[in-house]
Design a protein around this nucleic acid. Structure first.
Ligand code: NAD
Ligand code: NAD
Lengths: 219, 219
DNA sequence: CCAAGTATGTGAAATCTTTAACGACTAACG
DNA sequence: CGTTAGTCGTTAAAGATTTCACATACTTGG
């Protein structure tokens, strides 16, 4: 790892993978240059925000010209560590876990689910999406140095599994269960709560009426 | 609908379903009262933020006492329209779509997936999680007055389907495809981009090292 | 009925994020 | 080679959200 330009705002950091993906698309399409305005139309983020985001990394573009797609892409590839693959474990091969295993994020990404765990004897030993399913009892033993886990177990099991993951040395957990798990502060948890996302959308529809003109919305 | 107390901040609105769910849990456990501090521990949101959030709706608690669970719950039930069920359509019965249909959000919620659509003839006519799968060609005809759609089709099909949904009168779309779809401003789209969530977690792990003490994190 | 303890609701400050505006510079063309 | 149109990087303003900190008011136990 190299010197940290530590002060990238979190809001910016969350948009970086999005930029990277669209840059990749543009590159595949053979585009050589792109302006913040074009990018804005594609990713639905205000063009000033895009320029501001990029500027945290220095002067990546040219005034009057825009950004060189190749250059920008290679810059982000380094920044987002797209060259090394982050190995990921998935716990809970149920409805959601199976969907993730079949998808496996490799199409665009630097991440790969390498191993899965489940408590159900019938699943253990099988393969889903090319990933072997191990018994949850062997978690500590088989996790190795994997540092990121996706949690798709029933919510009642979430805290217990999280505790074991932490003990086994995990650094980050992507938690899809509705349980709000507690971990020490040296472990990062991102909650993705799908039921809440749906309810929030419904709430916004009822209470934040939209106008009858153009343009569109945030995530 | 009734008078809008319009100025609830969006950040607050997004937390309301979360509060509601934990209040429900407390109620089930037979708890009669709860403080912002207790709630904070459970949902991992700062207690001052919780008090501030609640205060947008007026004085819901009692000083020196806390909040009455029953009262707060019934208040949020009204606020979040938990009494009427919002009907939802799901488009794209693949890996992710199937998981959602099997889950179907009814356990906690005021939402229900009532109908699904797919282009694959083999799926059409079948039932998944008790929901009938219709052919996508019949979308306009069978959608009825459903106003919310979950989009889990391949990203190449996303914009086309979104256009048809809009024409058919949809108000909100929960978009799980990586495509950033364009819609008129009277339609609300929330993007849930799982690949990006995973990449963002990995980025944070590498660039925002966490300390060796206690407490935990946001989503 | 009082004293001690508790927890709200909120002004004010701090922090974070987005947006507007524009000077400086580039490319491209006649 | 000058002019026009285009676009960045940034300063500054505005807006949104979180957090602090405390006066106030209620509860509880004696
Ligand atoms: N499926 C959805 O659409 C959806 C939507 C929102 C939230 N969720 C949440 O995601 C989580 C998973 O949902 P799902 O629908 O895939 O559930 P599921 O029941 O289909 O899958 C859970 C899996 O975890 C396994 N499991 C149970 N206990 C375990 C343990 N202790 N260790 C390891 N594995 C264990 C089970 O064998 C099962 O395979 C749940 O918490 C659910 O609330 C799911
Ligand atoms: N599965 C995951 O874990 C995952 C993760 C991140 C993002 N996504 C995104 O979610 C979306 C769905 O993923 P998936 O894994 O479920 O894909 P999938 O291929 O399993 O499912 C897509 C379904 O959509 C149907 N379909 C195709 N074209 C259609 C059309 N025009 N109208 C209606 N139905 C149509 C297909 O028949 C199929 O059943 C994709 O855009 C994918 O990029 C999925």
């Amino acid at each position: 790892m190299d010197i940290e330009q530590t002060k990238i705002p979190q809001a910016t950091a969350k948009r970086l993978p999005l930029y990277y993906r669209f840059l990749n698309n543009l590159h595949t399409q053979g585009k050589l240059r792109v302006s913040s305005k074009e990018l804005s139309d594609a990713v639905k983020v205000d063009s000033a925000t895009i320029r501001r985001d990029f500027s945290y990394f220095g002067a990546l573009g040219k005034k009057g010209y825009g950004y060189n797609v190749e250059y920008l892409l290679s810059f982000f590839r380094k920044t987002l560590d797209q060259d090394e693959t982050t190995r990921v474990a998935l716990i809970g091969v149920g409805n959601l876990g199976t969907a993730f295993l079949n998808y496996n994020f490799t199409k665009n990404n630097n991440t790969k689910i390498e191993i899965a765990f489940d408590a159900n004897e019938e699943r253990v030993g099988s393969e889903v999406g090319g990933v072997g399913v191990e018994h949850i009892d062997d978690l500590e033993e088989k996790l190795g140095d994997i540092s990121v886990a996706i949690l798709t177990v029933p919510s009642s099991a979430a805290q217990g599994i999280a505790d074991r993951l932490v003990k086994a040395g995990i650094s980050g957990i992507l938690n899809f269960t509705p349980a709000r798990i507690s971990v020490p502060s040296n472990v990062r948890v991102h909650h993705i709560d799908l039921a809440i996302e749906l309810q929030a959308l419904v709430y916004f529809l009822k209470h934040y009426p939209l106008n009858e003109e153009e343009a569109e919305e945030e995530q």
